[in-house]
Design a protein around this nucleic acid. Sequence first.
DNA 1: CATGAATGAGGCTTCATTCAT
DNA 2: GATGAATGAAGCCTCATTCAT
Lengths: 200, 200, 200, 200
Amino acid sequence: MSELPQPSTARGEATRQKLLAAAEEEFGERGFHGASVSAITRRAGVAQGTFYLYFPSKEDILRELVRYMGAQLREALSRAGEGLSQRLEVERAGFHAFMRFSLAHKNLYRIVMQSQFVDEAVYREYYRTLAGAYASGLARAQALGQLRGADPETLAWSLMGVAHFLGLRYAIWEDRLPPDEVMAAAFAFIERGLEPQEPA
Amino acid sequence: MSELPQPSTARGEATRQKLLAAAEEEFGERGFHGASVSAITRRAGVAQGTFYLYFPSKEDILRELVRYMGAQLREALSRAGEGLSQRLEVERAGFHAFMRFSLAHKNLYRIVMQSQFVDEAVYREYYRTLAGAYASGLARAQALGQLRGADPETLAWSLMGVAHFLGLRYAIWEDRLPPDEVMAAAFAFIERGLEPQEPA
Amino acid sequence: MSELPQPSTARGEATRQKLLAAAEEEFGERGFHGASVSAITRRAGVAQGTFYLYFPSKEDILRELVRYMGAQLREALSRAGEGLSQRLEVERAGFHAFMRFSLAHKNLYRIVMQSQFVDEAVYREYYRTLAGAYASGLARAQALGQLRGADPETLAWSLMGVAHFLGLRYAIWEDRLPPDEVMAAAFAFIERGLEPQEPA
Amino acid sequence: MSELPQPSTARGEATRQKLLAAAEEEFGERGFHGASVSAITRRAGVAQGTFYLYFPSKEDILRELVRYMGAQLREALSRAGEGLSQRLEVERAGFHAFMRFSLAHKNLYRIVMQSQFVDEAVYREYYRTLAGAYASGLARAQALGQLRGADPETLAWSLMGVAHFLGLRYAIWEDRLPPDEVMAAAFAFIERGLEPQEPA
DNA sequence: CATGAATGAGGCTTCATTCAT
DNA sequence: GATGAATGAAGCCTCATTCAT
């Protein structure tokens, strides 16, 4: 959809990846405004001008990173739920996967947060896409009678909120997975909120 | 605790307030980095130098605003729960109050989000303080048997997460209160998650 | 018509003048693109940022200079014709004044030429205004029977062309007034072209 | 005389021509500084590096274009006068030819103007050569008694000025030939200025 | 003959902050 | 208490040119 300059050679593609990796670290450590394009290229080991061979602007590389992270997260979550037939088990697995993901991608997490003030559209897109996928999973489970019949959109946003705040508090701030008791307490809360009136 | 210059006259206090109000709007509309001190002073109707008579730096006025918003929000929430004896009613009232507050203070909401990348300490302090107050309210209710006996800290963060995301989605992005069905669905979820096993 | 930042103090006005003078020299010597804002401010003896207190951009100071030169030239020309009752005498005086002006303002001459590629509108405005004033002078003289009855607009542009090229050739390129023979030859040509069929 | 690399193959010559044509358009549309080498090569449909196979620098291609235009114009003018025995008729034909040429080569016109600020030498050479050819034509006619006996150099520059300004005003700015009345008025002026005292 | 990735200097502009009045 | 001119560092981006393939 976007018209980013596209390298045509393998060497170009490698440079592009180095830039993306360098930007992820710089943005993560110093924030979007604190990171300079020159620091990014220095870290990537290329000249300043090279940056603009691959990205039209500093904002564009951020957007790219946000989209990339969204795709990664959705993939991690869907992988976590593979082969599970009970939705509550999918939820539990998803929560754990989310925490591991947050811990492993603290930089990208911060990048998503930052995008809010750089290009609100990608930020919204990030959450909307996530919520959409989430809600449709919930709706399917409701159809099977595995969950209570509440509005799946609302449930999706609520659950994202819970996961987000717990991830922030532990993975991002304290650099560790939430302790087991926390996960247990949170999940008990969620489970009760989701399960059908008459347990299956 | 604060090292800020304190105006001694009423005129000074008025100028200070004008600056705070102007900063709130500029930060809210353009973001911390997008807002310039000169735009703030222009909006406040004072000269550029005047800014530094009241705030040591641009970051400081942000911190002040974040603290101010935290206090306002906590007050709004505590007022919303006054006179209610059942905790679930307090929760419900708190949720509604939070949504109204978010809608009425969109700028301040954004300012809090921004503070994350300017001075992470105030940002954490904001949520820690809120969570602390929230958790102790929940703990009191648990002691009275009005809620399930789960870790109140974890519940507090989870509930903040739900409220935050719903507020973001509706109040901040769509500039309106969440529709009644959404509030109902969310609250049903919460209520089930919180209520004691054997209803009191 | 334009919204240039306006200094409110005498000190500010002085700085603005220093910048204008420095820009005139830099543009004249190195051309618009060869001149850097930093060279201008260095020459003016102020910091780089000061430039933008007075001019929104490098292009704006060029525009200002072009307009200034237009006004100066028109004034010089009108002064040269003061008190002369015969139009051909006015023409002769104007031609000499133009040459002296070009010689004295070589920088500004080049600036006008440059403006063509920076903001064609000011450039056109410069010549249109000049031509308009010139043509109305010619028309008045025609009404008095002092000149032939040809389209004054066309005559004005033609005469500007003659003056311009002679000014370029001598004043700008050779840094001197055109030799007397040249002025005489040129003026004989013009005179014959302008004078009424039956001499008054 | 020229130090430019000379292509030896037909394919090379074709590439060179594509570059020249592309540069003409880019310089004409965006100006010398606004046009980038990469835009030129893009328009020519070749890789960036290819440019430097044919031209040592961006300035060189401009010079080439200026010289080319000079030759074209002189040729157009001389062709216009072919077979005419009266100099005033040659002049008239030349004026019309000049206007047609300007209209058909607006880009090249602008390129010549630009060269003034890139390499003044070619620019002067352009006009000196033109003026030289022009003056010698006038001198020949004077020897035949077809024109007044004024300094032919001066007449040449004056006439170039008239043509230039009328061309600028109509062909370049308004993208059309000067209206007939304008041509008539201008030519009447010129004719009177040139013709011998006692018509031959 | 041609490619296109890479370079790195350099330019314009913004902006938080200082300071003389 | 207030002003507003001045500062100068720093950032984003462009572009002519080079070079390995």
